[in-house]
Design a protein around this nucleic acid. Structure first.
Lengths: 206, 206, 206, 206
DNA sequence: GATGAATGAGGATTCATTCAT
DNA sequence: GATGAATGAATCCTCATTCAT
């Protein structure tokens, strides 16, 4: 597993960053491994020393993104209790942070799966399923408790995730909206989407 | 304007279909123009007779998609009255139908803008803005009338559109869910997202 | 023989002019028959209606150049008497006028022979030999009469022709030097090269 | 500067020779880079490893020709004294040797400038101007000293250079005339063209 | 551990040319 | 007589990758 022992040599990191940018700008098929090496100020042969192929580089990139996202998700879930609403907010925050992170990483995760080989594809699909299930579990729990009234929990989940994903497409860190603002808004939006109805709101807010 | 006089020669249509599939499967950069021609059962030189370059082919493809989407949107809006809720539902139906349409067309619209030249990029951006504005206008109207209570109409709009867009990624026409079902669900979801509160609710719910 | 009945239809002339320019700018191999047609404002198929191939077009071009050059040479020779010096001056004038004529025509004559097929190559070589022989005959006559003292009439001839040919490379009609000035200078130079020594110079100059 | 550190790897040299021949036979536009590689017994990709483009290959070729010509010119000038006549003869010898050298190199220098990019074009133009100026300086010096009586030193210079250049077109090393003979003849011819009149001729001829 | 040289396959595109209309 | 459509071959060049050093 590459994610248990993340490769953090300077060469690796420079290459991953360069690859992220190139892939994001031109797509996997359009990116040139030469340009990636040059962008990382690394010799072409050195790139092949680190990563055996273009696909492997893509996989490492996507995998590393997943590492980060998983880490943030787990960390944030650790700061909240059992309340599904709170947990959903934590997951939304993690996803917004991820999609608002280093340019490109995020879009790649969405579109360049097809460029992976079958094994790597399956591996990442599995990791993605884990991330999806974190949402599913929380939403299902909320529904089970009667806190989330949405009649279609699956569509609600997909909507929430899609909305967060889309952030990568339009939000810019140097724009008027801060990431924290975004987190607030999308947390709230997520609760709207699942049709959150808190219990005993009177007592709670007193 | 290519959209006023759509090129519907058999060669054009076969090439657009083939290009749609290839681009969808491999990405613009990864697709081979040779393979596209072969898939369309057209000679390579004939392809260049129709479309001057790979980029132009992509542009024609995306532009044609926009033609269809625009057409459906306008048609469906024509079937409803002034009620923003109805109009929003019409727009959602149009988008769901579009995203559920021919495989690929839809995803391309989302990711391969970068592969266009500056002019074509701008041209499609403009068309996309028109489509976005249809949603914006309807949502803003609903908010102005007090029918939509969402505090963040922009995020609501983005969420609705992102949710519909995502359909292209997971929904399959041969699956358990019909497109009509999807339209119902996402129309309802959209109203949830904008926090629709119909007037005279007292009478209705009594 | 194309030179006895020169094809002077408007289409022909436009194509020859366009071809002259394209060939001159890009060389025969580098020129595109499409660009030539476009430059002549003639459809590609029309070009092929006039000239059966790229080579044929080149041949017609070179041949037409030869027509003009031959014509001028013969005309000018007709205006002078038997004196080899006068005749040499006439030939130089004809050649300078030709090399100073429509851009390109002239350079082509020098370099693009190789691009012709064997037959056309031979045909033009023969015409070129005729032109060369006009110089040879005049110089040999001058030498025989003791008017031209050059010990190497062949080299003298080549030098004179080369000098005139080179005019096409550096002289511009819109520059400071007029073509008539050039004719004077190169006539004189030619006489220098053949080491002209007029007879009875005493009487003449008295 | 490529001329200070001439690339003399075997691959480079083989490619330059092959390119010289191909370009000479077919012209720059008509030559195929594949054929050049094949002629040099080098893989196509290796060619591109050495020279980034067809143009670059042409430039290297012309540049190398200039290197040789410059070298010979300077060397031969070093063997003579200050006498303009002697110096002119040295320059003529250098040019005749160059034009009589490896087939093609020479013709290319004359016609394929147009095929270079603007920068390379300018670079070679500059080198060519240096070579031209060597002639100009010597001829002007001869005129200033009253040794060369030509009334048009510029035309004389152009004529001498054109005559020597033309050698590449007709002279063959395996013909009846040796290069040394040619050198003698053209040196003499050059002095005729500048109308050389040695001082104290009476004493010398007595 | 790192690299410059080398390569075969394939990239997009343009070529001169033909032919049905 | 004139042309738009179509084509197979060839264009220059770049690709991801390997290997001797």
């Amino acid at each position: 597993m590459t994610n248990t022992a993340p490769p953090r040599s300077p060469g690796h990191q420079a290459l991953l960053a360069a690859a992220r940018e190139e892939f994001a700008e031109r797509g996997y098929g359009g990116a040139s491994i030469r340009d990636i090496a040059q962008r990382a100020a690394v010799s072409l042969a050195a790139l092949y020393h680190y990563y055996g192929s273009k696909q492997e580089l893509l996989h490492a990139l996507l995998d590393e993104g997943m590492d980060v996202y998983d880490q943030v998700s787990v960390d944030l879930l650790g700061t909240v209790g059992d309340d599904p609403a709170e947990r959903l907010e934590a997951l939304v925050e993690a996803l917004v942070r991820f999609r608002g992170g280093p340019r490109g990483s995020s879009q790649l995760e969405l579109t360049e799966f097809r460029s992976l080989g079958p094994e790597q594809h399956a591996a990442l699909r599995a990791r993605q399923a884990v991330a999806t299930n974190r949402f599913r579990d929380v939403i299902d729990a909320g529904v089970a408790l009667g806190l989330f009234r949405t009649p279609e929990p699956d569509d609600a989940r997909r909507t929430i995730i899609a909305a967060c994903n889309a952030i990568a497409q339009w939000w810019r860190p140097d724009g008027a909206i801060t990431l924290d603002t975004l987190i607030d808004r999308y947390s709230s939006l997520a609760l709207t989407v699942v049709e959150y109805r808190p219990r005993r709101i009177r007592a709670a807010r007193t």
